[in-house]
Design a protein around this nucleic acid. Structure first.
Lengths: 167, 167
DNA sequence: GTAAGTGCAAAACCTTTGCACGTCG
DNA sequence: CGACGTGCAAAGGTTTTGCACTTAC
């Protein structure tokens, strides 16, 4: 293991964890697993964390290539599960052809997705009650909660304007 | 239009609609649309309504062929949207490779899906509050509600037993 | 040096579509 | 007859995988 930078001596080594710096967290996660910290992986990570909104594997490929033109689709698809597993990105499946992803920065409560079926725009909204809901429902059925998903499909303002006269 | 059976004379002709007999409702829907009531379509309908649980397009194909061996995948895939549109079956997308469907018999409140990620078993559960939820959330964002989806993934009893010793 | 990672291209997978034939009205 | 419906087979589009080469450690 590498020694921490000087600043680390100021406090009693705060066991970096996931919080500090996502990029370091990723590198740590990798090496902790015996996985290698490679250029494509970092390019993909950086591309993902540059994104503030939802992105697809394809989006990620394009952006990764701005940093490392050699990155291939295969590597992107192989990296996504790793990023999801270490909790740095989240998969957002809205039931369309391709899956979406987004970074997990600043998300403490459960999020539902508001999706426009026309333009496929996704808005994340807090749905705190879901924390209770899923657990309760699962237990009531003798099951063990894994994850949940709450999606509301609704035409967005813009698309309502454009198609005003369709109904 | 066919005359009602004798019993219908007991009451003032109850305007068949979707309720009476699903098969007739389907036929009526078709002809009302200028679509034809064909043998494959009825075979597919019957196969669907024979099912008491969730089924895939593939399931439906197999079952349809028991009634009409000539039915092709293409026709199944072309019929499913029709059955969904006339409200006789419902699409249940649990985010897996293939979509599930089920008949809409006796479903008055919104249903959520309890899905076992291991065996892919689906349990439908009432979630009445969702009627309010989606509308509220959509309106709050100036959007027009189309549909909703609430899914809880949880290991079922059986799979918990089988994999007891995986965590 | 060795195991893991990568790019390439082909495969996989469910679903859709083009086309010529069949059939219902 | 004329439009709608059907089966067949090929196409579609995202994600996965096999393989030989490259790289991190």
């Amino acid at each position: 293991m590498k020694p921490f930078p000087d600043s680390s001596r100021l406090r009693p080594t705060p066991s970096i964890k996931t919080s500090e710096n996502p990029r370091d967290a990723f590198a740590l996660f990798l090496s902790g697993r015996g996985l290698r910290v490679t250029s494509p992986r970092l390019a993909i990570f950086d591309a993902a964390y540059e994104r503030k909104d939802h992105f697809t594997a394809e989006d990620l490929l394009v952006d990764s290539r701005k940093r490392d033109p050699e990155v291939s689709p295969a590597t992107v698809y192989r990296s996504l599960p790793i990023l999801v597993e270490c909790g740095l990105i989240r998969e957002v499946d809205i039931g369309r052809d391709h899956k979406y992803y987004m970074t997990t920065l600043r998300q403490n409560t459960f999020q539902a997705q508001l999706v426009c079926p026309d333009c496929e725009k996704i808005v994340e909204i807090d749905a705190p009650f879901m924390e209770w809901y899923g657990k309760t429902v699962a237990e009531k059925n003798g099951m063990q909660l894994v994850s949940q998903r709450l999606q509301v499909d609704a035409h967005c303002k813009d698309c309502l304007k454009k198609h005003a006269g369709n109904t």
